[in-house]
Structure formats: C-alpha cells, structure tokens
Amino acid sequence: MTTVRRVLIGAGGLVMAYAVIGALTDADLKGGAYVFLVAVLVAHDAVLLPLTLAAGALIGRFVPVRSRTPVRAALLIGLAVTVVATPLVLGRGRVADNPSILPLDYGRGLLEIYAAIGLGTGLAWAVRRIRARPTGSRRRRSGGSRGTSC
C-alpha cells in the first residue's frame, strides 16, 4: 500500500470519527436524525454498493476492454443523478395550491441528463477508438536495423 493511500485512509477515518463524535455530542440533534443517518448507511451498504459491484462485474464480463472505462463512468454518473433526482421526479413535497414548489418538469430534465451522459460516453468511446487506431507515422517497423544502410 502506498503512502498516499495510507494518508487518505487515515484522513477519511479522522473525518468520519469527527462527524460521529459531533453527532453524538450535539444537544440539538433529535432522534429522527440518528434514524435517518443509520438508514442512509444501511441503504448504501445493503442496496447501492451491491448493485454497483454487480454492474461493474457485468460490465467486466460483457463489455470489451477498450470500452469499459467510459461505460462504467456513465453508469456511475447515471446512478448518482438518479439517486438525487428521484424525489424530484416523484414530486414529493409538491402542493397543489403552491405551484412555485417543484415547478419544473423533472422527469424530462432527468431524461435530458441521461441523453447528455450517453452523448458524452459516445464521444469518449469514439476518442479512445480513434487514438487506439495506428496511423502511418506511428506504425512499428518490423525487422531490420534502424538508420543503417547496407
């Protein structure tokens, strides 16, 4: 394990310890907040993490090596956007007598974000494909000695 990785793990552990100690010693924090924090932790570890690992394994099995990185990045970005946008798309908190609360068409916006992610992934894939293609000046010469004449 590299030194940088050890420092990052240690810093992450200290930040988490600070957050837990701060939550436990804060007099203003109510019991519902603890339930929410535990629920988020359980949902992450029991649902999102296994789904992410399964998707990564499926990508590793069925997607060609050259395309794996853009596909994995697109799916992770899509997952993050979906998690954030789901309450807005479902309209939680929308009130009929106050149209200024959640006034946009969030479903259409989410589809537009998906389209942008797909376009970006396609462009990244195309750039990787073009860069991997050998050109006339980059082809390897086979056999013979270099720069000597017979």
Rank of each mutant, 00 (worst) to 15 (best):
R6V: 01
G31Q: 12
L58I: 12
A55D: 15
R61M: 12
A57Q: 04
L76R: 13
L110I: 11
F62N: 15
P50H: 10
V42R: 09
L51I: 06
T135C: 04
V71M: 03
R138T: 15
I59N: 07
L53Y: 02
A33S: 13
I101R: 07
T121S: 03
A54R: 12
L104W: 12
I59F: 01
R6C: 03
C150K: 06
G147V: 00
A124S: 07
G31M: 10
R128S: 10
S137N: 14
R140F: 10
G144S: 00
A23C: 09
L51Q: 12
A116F: 05
L37K: 03
L41E: 08
L24K: 08
R6S: 10
T2R: 15
A55Q: 11
R66M: 09
G78W: 03
L102M: 08
L102I: 05
R66T: 07
W125F: 01
G118Y: 03
I9W: 02
V89C: 00
R146L: 11
P103M: 12
A116W: 09
I101M: 05
G13V: 15
G122H: 02
V7E: 13
G56E: 11
V38D: 00
N98A: 09
V42C: 08
Y18G: 12
G22H: 07
A17R: 14
A11V: 15
T25P: 04
I130E: 15
L111R: 15
W125I: 05
L76C: 07
P134L: 09
A54T: 12
R129Y: 04
A23V: 06
A57P: 05
R72L: 13
A27H: 13
A33W: 02
L58M: 11
T52C: 04
I77K: 04
S145G: 13
L79I: 14
L76M: 10
K30F: 00
H44K: 09
T52I: 07
P87R: 02
T121L: 01
M16I: 15
V84G: 02
A43V: 06
V89M: 03
W125A: 09
A19R: 06
